[in-house]
Design a protein around this nucleic acid. Structure first.
Length: 431
DNA sequence: TCTGGGGTCCTAGGACCC
DNA sequence: TCTGGGGTCCTAGGACCC
């Protein structure tokens, strides 16, 4: 393979090891490497919650994984079970990224998730040493010293190599550093035993590849790229590139493509069969996403509703439905958006069908810079302003300070969920 | 495994336009 | 009208990630 035309640089993907659990340990003055602790979602709607994170000691001593439920946990006094504090984790994540900013320009840092960031060190690493591994160790050391957090690092010539190096090689290496470069792709990527361990490949894709008699990365790398493209489309081309460690995505242009949708969803505490009680939840979720929309200074051009039916009726009614529509004009007004959500619900819901899961999103986001006027209705800028004030009050005094009267009706879950951040406990009353 | 929650990207078919 | 052909927009659904 000739890599001479491929983009080449120095990239890191840095992950905070057992992030929530480690933050909880250090915030409590405990050693994250020896303290068995799990962070358990409190969501009252499910059977006792879900393990969101577990410390290395919890994994080691009790064999706990993140798919465990509360009922799976051992009854052992040594195991600390704590609720999540999302706001604390967000704050720590910002602190970690501020350390990274000492090593790269702002445009060369991409926070990828709450515990992972991508750094393009191509232009700056020589400022900090002659050996890239020493620079990596220095960054890890800084994060450990200042925040008491353990980081694992993938290093590569592009973000894809760095990500695979992180996922496959960093965790079991004594320094928590994994490295893949163009030179070592056949040695490092092809032997990976389970194809679904590769970022971007899950069971469905593995099955499609198996149908082409491709069962491992070595076979993928040596398959006919034209056949892959013919059978799998663009996905086939990308898979072939992945096997060869090639990544042509441009970090900078990718960043611009964010904020495409905002959504919230929830599993209901029981089956909801009455139309009005289902609608209460849709209205609450609609108000919530509109509030977030305005907080981001955006407006939406489309809405999306998904309804999941109770398992008990799925053989009769199917799994549920999901539908979306485009708005005639973009808006951030709760009333307009919820009206469209309710329209979709009314149109597709089968009377009496038991609902267990509800999701709503606003899509086609644009910046809210003077709302476009709709010739069929009068301008109502004043209404948006009122909602801005309501948002401000919620920010300062908590989400339940002002709420729609609907939430007091049976079925409403807004009050119970008001302390949640991203569906988990925020740890305080603000968001 | 079976109801945790928030996202993004890709594909395919129908409607519609010129 | 019949089947000319290219292009875009929209919706539904699949797949994957953290």
């Amino acid at each position: 393979m000739d890599y001479s035309q491929e983009p080449t640089g120095v990239y890191l993907v840095i992950d905070n090891k057992s992030f929530y659990a480690t933050v909880e340990c250090t915030a409590r003055g405990l050693d994250p490497l020896t303290t068995p602790l799990v962070v358990m979602s409190e969501a009252a709607n499910t059977n006792g919650g879900l393990v969101l994170a577990s410390s290395p000691a919890a994994k080691r001593m009790f064999n706990i994984s993140n798919v465990n439920r509360r009922r799976d946990l051992p009854n052992d006094k040594r195991l600390l079970v704590v609720p999540p504090r999302m706001n604390l984790y967000i704050e720590r994540n910002i602190a970690v990224n501020n350390i990274f900013r000492e090593y790269v320009a702002d445009e060369d840092l991409i926070p990828y998730s709450i515990d992972e960031s991508i750094l393009n060190l191509t232009h700056s690493w020589r400022l900090f040493g002659n050996n890239i591994l020493q620079v990596v160790r220095r960054i890890q050391h800084e994060v450990k010293e200042r925040l008491d957090l353990i980081t694992t690092v993938g290093l590569g010539n592009n973000p894809l190599q760095a990500k695979i190096a992180l996922d496959i090689y960093s965790k079991h290496n004594s320094e928590f550093i994994g490295v893949i470069t163009y030179d070592t792709v056949p040695n490092k990527i092809w032997p990976i035993a389970d194809i679904t361990d590769i970022w971007g490949i899950n069971h469905r894709t593995a099955a499609r590849l198996a149908a082409l008699n491709i069962h491992n990365i070595h076979q993928l790398a040596n398959a006919d790229p034209y056949l892959l493209k013919e059978k799998l489309g663009l996905m086939g081309t990308q898979l072939y590139a992945t096997a060869w460690g090639i990544d042509r995505t441009n970090m900078h242009t990718q960043v611009l493509r964010r904020d495409k949708s905002i959504g919230n969803s929830q599993v209901l505490p029981r089956d909801y069969c009455q139309k009005d009680e289902i609608e209460v939840v849709i209205k609450e979720l609609g108000a919530q996403i509109c509030s977030r929309l305005r907080a981001h200074n955006k407006q939406a051009g489309g809405v999306y509703l998904s309804i999941g039916y109770s398992l008990s009726i799925q053989d009769r009614y199917g799994a549920g439905f999901a539908h979306s529509l485009k708005l005639s004009t973009s808006t951030a007004e709760t009333d307009k958006i919820t009206a469209q959500l309710l329209y979709l619900f009314d149109k597709y819901w089968e009377e009496g069908a038991a609902v267990r899961h509800i999701g709503v999103s606003v899509t086609r986001l644009t910046s809210r810079y003077g709302e476009q006027l709709d010739i069929f209705s009068s301008p109502r800028q004043d209404k948006v302003k009122v909602e801005d004030v309501m948002d401000e009050i919620r920010r300062r005094f908590g989400k339940t300070a002002i709420m729609r009267a609907n939430s007091l009706k049976p079925g409403g879950t807004f009050i119970a969920r008001s302390g949640l951040v991203g569906g988990h406990s925020g740890g305080n009353s603000f968001e």
